[in-house]
Design a protein around this nucleic acid. Sequence first.
DNA 1: TTTTTATGAATGAACATTCAATCCGTTTGG
DNA 2: CCAAACGGATTGAATGTTCATTCATAAAAA
Lengths: 224, 224
Amino acid sequence: MRSSMKFESTVTDPKLVADRRAQIASAAITLFAVKGYYRTTILDIAKAAGISSGLIYQYFREKEDVLCFALLRVVDTYEREIPRRISEAQDPIDRLCLAVEAYCSIVDELRDATLLAYRSTQSLSAEGRKFLMEGEQRSNAIILDCINECIKGRYFNDVNGDLLVYQYVMYCHTWALKYWAFREKYTLQEYVQEGLKLLVEPHLTSRKGRRAFNNRQGDVLPEL
Amino acid sequence: MRSSMKFESTVTDPKLVADRRAQIASAAITLFAVKGYYRTTILDIAKAAGISSGLIYQYFREKEDVLCFALLRVVDTYEREIPRRISEAQDPIDRLCLAVEAYCSIVDELRDATLLAYRSTQSLSAEGRKFLMEGEQRSNAIILDCINECIKGRYFNDVNGDLLVYQYVMYCHTWALKYWAFREKYTLQEYVQEGLKLLVEPHLTSRKGRRAFNNRQGDVLPEL
DNA sequence: TTTTTATGAATGAACATTCAATCCGTTTGG
DNA sequence: CCAAACGGATTGAATGTTCATTCATAAAAA
């Protein structure tokens, strides 16, 4: 299930609508990220997108809809991409690690938008917020499934899965939130590797879990 | 070192200045948290504080200064309270756990303001942002010291301290960021306990570390 | 030609900031 | 002991600017 929120448009051609909205949203996200939502004017967005200010109102009902549209695309991307990227693997540990990797790399690609989600959710209508939270919950559920599979298959010791999900998700988000601190110290790859060491490794069962974890990387952990 | 940013006031009596600023900031934080910074007008703040709109300008140069003042009080609180609360303990594990507990409970008390810091840093001037980041770095350094003591004293296995600090800090912040999800599931106490299990326990050395960790709580971990 | 898409100047509401006027406690001079 | 003057603190209406949004018009497509 993908977010199904509807946005109004006076323009009829669906392809044109999709393209223009993407064009507008992309310009808007950059500006919102740099100047913030309220400091960014419709005229700013129009200029950055290379269109007139009035045209934006042919594709969105109001300024807030531009924000909402942009943020929903982010959670949609999580929901679409993470399952796609873990579908290759069978092994639960593999799938969990791939999910974290995928999440981090999407955050990296959509760093501006991820930040924006933290900063600007409040500027959304109750309805927009609801859709956003539901999307977030759905992508959390994907990770939770991975964790539960690890526990069920005895790759993981028994842990509080609900809370661990948030650890993983926040770890991924933190790449965007604290990018100013991390960019100097780590590449994204290193960050992900360290994250797995920190957040996956400690919960592995001493035999089955460690074996599976070792299998997927260069560096080898001793079985305890 | 505490944040030393100066704010202008036309009022001379220092006690009055401190009181009025606290009064204004407190009203402002609540409103900012509920409606957001830009949606909150100076008149809103004045009404909530029970004073006239003009008076705010006797204590702050501009609206942004109210925000900045409020946010700096938060990081100042971390810097003041965490060292105070860990000073009772000698044992490195104790100190680390106390630091996390203290951090979480400050976040809980200042939940609105903590959220605000994530949402509104961007609305600050470059100078305000700088002060805020420096304060954040200083309180991170307090936690990092605790971690390094644990490693040096062989209570912790060797871990990436820099990254672990962010795990701890983000765990504490997450209490505010995801309060809407956690409030139904955990009390603050439970949240902290689970956090220690998740983020401290896995890094304990099997003897010395576990022994110290067990000493401080009711529930007993077996030494491996 | 008719319909759809695009433009950008005009409108009007919202709001930060200012400032002339007021309030009120304290000091001064009779 | 009282009254007048003083000055810091406070008020809130007035100001000017900044946009979101609209709409009459133009361009392009069908």
